[in-house]
Design a protein around this nucleic acid. Structure first.
Lengths: 113, 113
DNA sequence: TTCGTATTTTACTGATGAGTAAAATACCAA
DNA sequence: TTGGTATTTTACTCATCAGTAAAATACGAA
């Protein structure tokens, strides 16, 4: 699983990590700040951050003993591009659902019952 | 990891499974047909399909001894929606890169060297 | 230097994932 | 019924992941 898209998707496939990214979308934060909402060791959060960093979704800087995290959404672009190639399929399904619902509401279609 | 988005992302975070979906985007296929391109046991492919089915990305039907697979991209909608919330961040990064490259190309900015 | 705060690393545990081989199941056809 | 094709299940192995506790590291401040 060394391809970047797999790495990005795997990193995103965890609610804790997505919450960290959501927090970072409001601005930089230290590990302590990021860990605060979670019922989890600091070390555990540190490892989640490492996964995100490894996927290129988080970048780090250095300020004294702090190593603040910043969001880097760039790898999500590939995810967006990937799922977009399937858009027509889910929209097609919605169209079918829509047609089905319309059919149910059309009196004529139910005359046999 | 029981939330649907995590399940979908985890299912997509594997090149074999994405290849299966790509194949299914061209139409239904049996497990044997799906397994053909892979250097992997039929049982292994069967399990990958189970993961996709579990994520709602693949639906099955029954035709004699065949249990053909069909693509259902519906769960990808949530993925698309999710990454879209970060679009402004990666576009911002592109803008910054663009500005940076422009700056490099502007003679005035390098007069000090 | 010594302390305190921030963060990571290490060693370990338990759960889960990918893969295999071989047996089991399902269903059609002769 | 017997055989054949399609597919899944089971039991097992190996690797990876999430989490913890405790030690280690990094760095500013007194």
């Amino acid at each position: 699983m060394t391809d970047p898209l797999s790495t990005t998707l795997a990193a995103l496939a965890d609610p804790t990590r997505r919450a960290i990214l959501a927090r970072l979308s409001t601005g930089e934060a230290s590990v302590n700040e990021l860990a605060e909402p979670f019922d989890m060791t600091l070390a555990a959060v540190s490892k989640h951050i490492k996964v995100l960093e490894n996927a290129g979704l988080v970048s780090r800087s250095k300020q004294a003993q702090y190593r603040p995290c910043a969001l880097d959404a760039t790898p999500m672009r590939e995810v967006a591009t990937y799922v977009e190639t399937y858009r027509r399929f889910w929209e097609q399904n919605l169209d079918q659902l829509d047609a089905y619902l319309r059919k149910l509401q059309t009196p004529d279609s139910n005359t046999k019952n």
